[in-house]
Design a protein around this nucleic acid. Sequence first.
DNA 1: TCATATGTTGAATTTTAATTCATATCATGA
DNA 2: TCATGATATGAATTAAAATTCAACATATGA
Lengths: 210, 210
Amino acid sequence: MKNGKPSRKEREYLRHRQEILKVALKLFSEKGFHNVSMHEIAEKSEFAVGTLYKFFSNKEDLYRALMLEASNVFHSSLMAALATSGSELEKIRACVEAKIKVFMDNLDYVRLYMAETQGVSFNVKTSLDPEIMDRYEKFLKQLARVFENGIKKRLFKKFEPYLLAVALDGISNALLFHHVEYPGAHSFDADLIINIFFQQVYEKEDLRDE
Amino acid sequence: MKNGKPSRKEREYLRHRQEILKVALKLFSEKGFHNVSMHEIAEKSEFAVGTLYKFFSNKEDLYRALMLEASNVFHSSLMAALATSGSELEKIRACVEAKIKVFMDNLDYVRLYMAETQGVSFNVKTSLDPEIMDRYEKFLKQLARVFENGIKKRLFKKFEPYLLAVALDGISNALLFHHVEYPGAHSFDADLIINIFFQQVYEKEDLRDE
DNA sequence: TCATATGTTGAATTTTAATTCATATCATGA
DNA sequence: TCATGATATGAATTAAAATTCAACATATGA
C-alpha cells in the first residue's frame, strides 16, 4: 500500500515511542519515578520490556525524555506570552493566563515539571538536567526584565525585579497547586492572581512615592 | 554511678534513636529517600543494620518519624506566631518572620517538609501521612481566619481569605526556596515579603473602595 | 560469680526491579 | 516463495537493597 513517503518506518517508530511516553507520563505522574517499574510501563503500553530498551537506553533516559517534553511545552508557552505586545502589565497578565492554561491542559505534566522547578528536584536521582533548570532560570529572568521595564516606566513600585518574578511565580504555583488538589474548593482565575499580586504592586497614579 | 532517675535506659534509648534520626535526616535531605540505603544510615550512625530495625520497623517508618518531627517543628512555630497578640497585620508579620526563622534554622528539614506541603508529595511512596497534610491544612485555615478578621475590620481588601493564605504562603515559599538555592543572589528578609504582598493588600485608609 | 535480660551485630536471605540477549516474528523485495 | 534485515519478545540474568535472625556482648542484680 501507499508509496514512498518521506518516511513511514519512521512515523511508525515515532508513534510507538510516543505511545510509550504517554503511558510512562501517566504512570510517573501518578506514582513517581521510583514507584513505577519498566515492567509496568511495558505492560500498560502493550510492548515487551525489551522493546522499551530499543527506544530508551534506560529508565532514567525515558524519564529525562518526558521532562524535556514537559519543559518544552511549558517554556515555549510562557515565553510566547511574555513576548506579547502591549504594556508590561499586559505582558504579565498574558503570562499568568498562559500559565493557567498550560497548567490545566497538561495536568499530567504538571507534577513532573513542578518537581523540577519548584523547590529544586528532590528525590529523583541526582537532580536531573541542568538544561531544564537553565530554561526555568531564563524564564524568570525574562519575567524579571518585564518587571524592570515596568519599574523604569513608573508603572510598578521599586522592588528587586527578579524577586518580583520569583514572588509572582510563587503565588501562581501555590494557587494552581491548591486548585488542582482541591478543585472547586475556592473558585479561582487569572484575574485573582493579577489582582492579589498586582492591582497592588501596580502603583496607583495618584500614589507614586518616588 | 548516678542513682535511679525516672529513667535511664530510656534516656539511652532515646539518645540512640535521636542519633539515628539525625544521620538519616542529613542523608535523606541530601540525597532523597530512595537514594539512601539502610546500610548507609547504619554505617554513618555507627550502628549495625539490624539495630536500626530495633528502633524503626522499616525504612519507611524511619522516614515517617522524621517527617513527623519536621512537621512538629514547623507547625508549632507557625501556629505560635499566629497566636501573637496584636493587629491582624502584626500577626501575619510575626508569622512570616517565624517562617523565615524556622526555615533558616532547619534547612535539613526544609527539603523533607516542603516535599510534603508544596506540590503534594511527589515521589515518596503513596503520599505519606495524612496527619501532616491535616496539620498544614489547619495552619492555612488559621492564617485564613486572620485574613478574614482583617477584612472584617476593613484592614484588608476583600479577597477570599483562604486564597490569600495560600498566596502568602506561596510567595514566602518561593522566595525562601530561591534564597536557599542561590544564597546571596538577592538580599531578602521578612519585610520584603510583607511589602510585596502586603503593603498592597493592606488597604490604604484613603482608598477604601467598599 | 553466674544467670538472665536487654541490646547489638552483620552475614545470609529475600525481595524487587533493571537490564540483557538468544530467539521469534514480521515486512520487504528478489 | 524465500532470504534478509529490521523489530519485538520475555524468560533469564544481574544488581541493589531491604529485612531477618542466630549468635554475641554487656549490664544487672541475685
